[in-house]
Design a binder for these strands. Structure first.
Lengths: 222, 222
DNA sequence: GACAAGATTAGACCGGTGGTCTAAATTCGG
DNA sequence: CCGAATTTAGACCACCGGTCTAATCTTGTC
């Protein structure tokens, strides 16, 4: 594993301009073809990197992909400017979540490049495997957010945190993809309205289930 | 495109035993490595199929995968024995949905092979692309189910059918995967309880949002 | 400034991939 | 029994990600 980190370090120490140029070209290829179908050889040719050079600065194709994604991820976090205030009650909690939801939405709407990069990740298992540490960090953040809600009683606590987080996150990703596919069918007005309703679904998933909402228990298996 | 269907037809007309033997081996490879990493050459070697034979009976790797999945899909449908009764009110509707949910759950629990095949599909975009027509059929069925709920007022109708379907289905897939990964941590008792709660989340997603459940509107984007 | 040691680069090379193609073998109707 | 159509064999292709060696630069030291 030392080899991987060694190469990572070398890539990091490269002159900013060169590194950026390489990653630009790699990003272009990865976004155009996806992780698997992207051709490393093509990237190297376009960027005028020799094979020897390549494997000196990143251990394999996955590591190059990781570098691309990490850069995009950092960009995204910069745009997000997250304010880490602890909400004190349910109302404040939901307000904070809603604000975050809105912010993410507008960032992705305005920055289609970042949005597409993010979608690309979840389309291919091997892409996810290549950046597993980054995804873990993201998932941890989301889980922390939801856990806060649980402590306040704003979020149902009868399911394992990881399970609930995964389900909610998956639903949101799917919604994002739906919007990406059906974007041209909606003007900004209706898109916003739809977006609000998606949040409603999201909130319903997390809300404590006691009482009115869910009336029917599932059937036991035969 | 004619070529594809021609080959498909030839595969279909093959003696049952031979076809089954081929698909068994192909399924084995696909499940062991996933669609992309599965080696067609390895399958052909194991099954003693020559290259010429191979491309005579299926147009490409994706078509062989499709044949494997289609067979599994048919098996699954057989096990499901779906009863197409139209529910007449909300309670009956939810009862039917819950029953279906339970049935699917137990089928997948008891038939790990089918479960793994299903999971494999959603792990790789190119696998999905290879069986896009089958997935469309499945999605249509799910949408029909949810549409019925909408007509009864049991399911919220303020979102496009496809969007709501996709979100709910994605959440369930994610839950299934979570169970697959964390299966050994739970005895059958608690697994069942968890399963019930997952259904609760699912139901909350679909339930009409008016009123009590969702209290806070999302923030507008800045 | 010479020179050794380490860092960096070039690119031939490797086994493997999915897919194509030609020619032979086999099957089958008349 | 023959000619036409179907079916099979496997050599061949471009390309893939990755390895390896030898050459070339860079740098510190005397």
């Amino acid at each position: 594993m030392d080899h991987r980190l060694q190469a990572r370090e070398r890539l990091r120490k490269l002159p900013e301009a060169q590194r950026a140029a390489w990653l630009d070209i790699a990003e272009d290829e990865f976004m155009a073809f996806g992780f698997e179908a992207a051709s490393l050889n093509r990237i190297l040719a376009r960027a005028a990197i020799s094979k020897g050079q390549a494997y000196y600065y990143f251990a394999d194709k996955g590591e190059l992909y990781r570098a691309v994604i990490e850069r995009a991820f950092d960009e995204f976090v910069d745009l997000l400017e997250v304010a880490p205030t602890e909400p004190e009650n349910t109302a404040a909690y939901w307000q904070q979540i809603a604000a975050l939801f809105g912010k993410v939405t507008t960032i992705l709407q305005r920055n289609n490049r970042l949005a597409e990069i993010g979608r690309g990740i979840y389309r291919e298992a091997r892409a996810q495997a290549a950046i597993v540490d980054l995804l873990e960090r993201l998932h941890t953040q989301l889980a922390r957010l939801i856990e806060t809600g649980q402590r306040l009683g704003a979020v149902r606590a009868d399911l394992p945190l990881g399970l609930l987080t995964s389900m909610a996150f998956a639903a949101l990703r799917e919604a994002d993809q739906w919007f990406a596919l059906n974007a041209r069918d909606h003007d900004q007005q209706t898109a916003l309205a739809l977006n609000r309703r998606v949040f409603t679904v999201f909130a319903a998933m997390l809300a404590p289930s006691a009482g009115t909402c869910t009336t029917v228990p599932p059937a036991t298996s035969s």
